[in-house]
Amino acid sequence: MSKTLSHAKIVARRSADRGYAEHGGWLKTFHTFSFASYWDHKFSHFGSLRVLNEDRVAAHNGFPTHPHRDAEIFSYILSGELTHRDSMVRRGAEAEASASGKDFYRMKRGDVQFTTGGTGIAHSEQNESGKPVHFLQIWALPWRTGLKPQYHTRSFDEAAKRHGFVPILSPLKAGVDATAKEEQEAVPKIEGTIPIHADFVMGAGIIEETKKFEWTVGGGEGVVEKRKKRNVYVHLPMTKGGKAKIRLDSREDAVLSEGDGAFITGVNAGDVLSVESVGEAEAEVIVLDSD
Rank of each mutant, 00 (worst) to 15 (best):
A8W: 02
A269G: 12
K3I: 15
S257P: 00
L141K: 07
S129L: 08
L273T: 06
H68M: 05
E183D: 13
A281C: 10
G92C: 03
S34M: 04
L141Q: 12
A71F: 14
V224T: 15
V176C: 02
F165H: 04
S15M: 02
Q150H: 11
I73S: 13
I77N: 00
R154L: 13
T216I: 15
V51L: 09
H60T: 06
E282D: 15
P142S: 08
T216V: 15
P195L: 07
K226N: 06
N231M: 09
K108S: 14
Y76D: 01
V176W: 05
V166I: 10
V176E: 12
D199I: 08
K148D: 12
L273G: 01
G203Q: 07
E208I: 01
E221Y: 11
S129E: 08
V267D: 07
A8N: 03
L172T: 10
Y233D: 04
R85M: 10
H7V: 02
V187I: 15
T179V: 08
F213N: 03
M1W: 09
S37H: 14
W143I: 10
A262R: 05
E182T: 13
M238G: 09
F156K: 00
H60V: 08
F46L: 11
G101F: 11
I194M: 04
L82E: 00
W26K: 13
A180V: 11
R162N: 11
H197A: 15
H123Y: 11
R251G: 04
W39N: 08
P67Q: 03
E225D: 11
Q184Y: 06
G175T: 11
P188N: 08
R18M: 00
G175C: 02
K9M: 10
A95E: 09
I138P: 09
A12S: 15
G270P: 06
I138N: 10
R230V: 08
E72W: 07
A58M: 13
